[in-house]
Simulated scan of single mutants.
Amino acid sequence: MTDVTNAHDLININVLYFASLADEANRQEEKLAVTPSTSLAQLYAQLSEKHRFSRPQADLRVAVNDYFAKWDDPINDGDSVVFITPVAGG
């Protein structure tokens, strides 16, 4: 997901999709190589453009390695990222 970056400068992450995001991405999981400076917000923006997600970032929560994270938290090699859509309760 980078332009002019040496492959040695990339980290590998796994993105999991659920609910409407899985439907829109047409997959439940995606392995990506990104630069270490990529924020979670930037990652969602790139994936949103790629998969044409209908939900804005403001509607979502994000988790890294099973823990809620902040959108400006760093991503590390081997991380598992999940974008969480709102869940209706009743």
Score class of each variant (00 low, 15 high):
residue 85 T to A: 15
residue 15 V to F: 05
residue 50 K to R: 15
residue 65 N to P: 04
residue 68 F to A: 02
residue 41 A to Q: 14
residue 6 N to M: 00
residue 68 F to M: 09
residue 16 L to I: 14
residue 13 I to D: 07
residue 76 N to V: 00
residue 89 G to E: 01
residue 83 F to A: 06
residue 53 F to T: 03
residue 81 V to Y: 09
residue 41 A to C: 04
residue 35 T to L: 03
residue 87 V to F: 06
residue 69 A to N: 12
residue 39 S to M: 07
residue 46 Q to A: 15
residue 71 W to E: 10
residue 15 V to M: 07
residue 16 L to E: 11
residue 73 D to Y: 04
residue 17 Y to W: 13
residue 16 L to G: 02
residue 9 D to M: 03
residue 50 K to A: 15
residue 37 S to M: 09
residue 55 R to H: 13
residue 64 V to Y: 00
residue 59 D to E: 14
residue 54 S to W: 01
residue 24 E to C: 07
residue 89 G to N: 01
residue 46 Q to N: 13
residue 5 T to G: 00
residue 19 A to G: 13
residue 69 A to L: 01
residue 21 L to V: 14
residue 52 R to I: 04
residue 36 P to C: 05
residue 38 T to D: 03
residue 85 T to S: 15
residue 4 V to T: 09
residue 25 A to I: 09
residue 1 M to C: 08
residue 65 N to K: 00
residue 27 R to P: 03
residue 30 E to P: 03
residue 49 E to M: 06
residue 86 P to V: 09
residue 14 N to A: 08
residue 67 Y to W: 06
residue 20 S to I: 13
residue 44 Y to Q: 06
residue 49 E to W: 06
residue 49 E to R: 13
residue 42 Q to V: 10
residue 37 S to E: 15
residue 4 V to L: 08
residue 27 R to W: 07
residue 57 Q to R: 14
residue 67 Y to M: 08
residue 60 L to G: 13
residue 30 E to Y: 04
residue 17 Y to C: 08
residue 73 D to Q: 05
residue 86 P to H: 09
residue 74 P to F: 00
residue 20 S to V: 12
residue 31 K to W: 11
residue 83 F to T: 11
residue 37 S to A: 14
residue 45 A to G: 06
residue 40 L to A: 08
residue 16 L to M: 11
residue 16 L to R: 10
residue 29 E to H: 12
residue 83 F to I: 13
residue 55 R to C: 01
residue 86 P to Y: 07
residue 74 P to V: 04
residue 42 Q to R: 11
residue 5 T to W: 01
residue 24 E to P: 04
residue 58 A to R: 08
residue 88 A to D: 05
residue 57 Q to L: 14
residue 44 Y to E: 07
residue 83 F to V: 10
residue 6 N to K: 05
residue 40 L to I: 02
